[in-house]
Amino acid sequence: MRGKKILVTGGTGQVARPVAEALAAAGNDVWCIGRFGTPGVAEELRARGVTTWRWDMEDDSEQALKGLPEDFTHVIHSAVRRGDDGDFNRTIDVNTTATGRLMAHCRTAEAFLFVSTGALYARQTLDHAYTEDDPVDGVADWLPAYPVGKIATEGAVRALARVLGLPTTIARLNIAYGPGGYGGVPMLYFQRMLSGQPIPVPREGQNWCSPIHTTDIVRQVPRLWEAASVPATLVNWGGDEAVGITDIVRHLEELTGVSARLVPSDVTRETYRFDPTLRRRLTGPCEVDWREGLRLTLAALHPDRLRPRYAASEHVQHRGART
């Protein structure tokens, strides 16, 4: 994509920041809006050619977006109030209202991409491959208000896509990981490994997921915009490969020599395996193998922890290609 005017929310996060920086580098006029609470992050984005503009999702007034241009051609809305405080009503109100105002403000855009979550699916077997038609219930013991807020916001997005005639894609994200930000869920587990903290795992079997590296996220965003429609297109956004969380942790052990304390528990950070059929049809296949993706992430964030034989690797291994 070149020559487009693109609006990004959540542009300091794991998913949207590499997208914003890559699109700016490709010759697009990219704007990131948010609170920019982390010192220096706004300056870093501007140094990469991204325009920053202050916006607080918690501000539900009609003036919240006053002064922001309205002529964006594409929008990716990744910002979220997670509901860490457990306030379900506030989580629903903030996310739906902020998203509604954003869609109304950008009603003339060619495409709107809303980043949702796979955590809203009704739990089935640990290795079940979830499709877009599977039932949802919004139950997540590790962060109860989060998936409920996402379900409510998906409803608002579907309604406004129709009311405004705004072509929209709702992408339910799986585990995103990579060298940017904190590295994603695999690096949260690695931090626990480094500190000797236990990692809760199911008493039988293991949680499964479909991790997607930020390289593939960046490459697929334009395809998800191309898939936008009225009514909204719904797609599971994860990698091609189903991977067990225990297998991820064991591979981190292999790469670093750091031991993990896996503790059987009734409550774990549940993850979900996606059926990639629809997403592959819309975006094409992923390129970064999960094992190489973990190595690259460690090399960027914890280079001193990689065993020499892995740190010395010179090439990124892609499925079917080498760069």
Results as ranks from 00 to 15, higher is better:
E62V: 03
L102A: 00
R46D: 13
V235Y: 01
L102T: 00
R309T: 09
I245R: 05
A260K: 02
A145E: 07
A227Q: 04
A260G: 02
V267G: 09
M193N: 00
P231R: 01
G13A: 12
G37I: 12
E292T: 08
A321I: 10
Y121I: 10
F274P: 11
W53I: 05
L278G: 06
E62W: 03
A64V: 00
E292R: 10
Y130E: 04
L120H: 13
A171V: 06
D289N: 13
G13M: 13
C106Y: 00
G10S: 11
R319N: 15
I151A: 09
L255K: 10
G149Q: 13
H315T: 15
H77P: 08
N174A: 15
G83S: 06
D71L: 02
T323P: 10
N28Y: 03
V139M: 05
Q197G: 02
G196W: 05
R273T: 03
L262Q: 08
D134S: 10
G238L: 06
T169E: 03
N207W: 06
I33D: 00
G196V: 07
A140H: 14
F190S: 04
Y130G: 10
R123M: 06
A299F: 15
G27E: 07
A232V: 03
A228M: 04
R279V: 11
T246L: 10
D216N: 14
R81T: 11
T9M: 00
L255F: 13
A79S: 02
K5G: 02
P231E: 01
R82D: 14
G320V: 11
V249M: 10
P264M: 07
T168W: 01
G37W: 12
A260E: 02
R192D: 05
D133K: 12
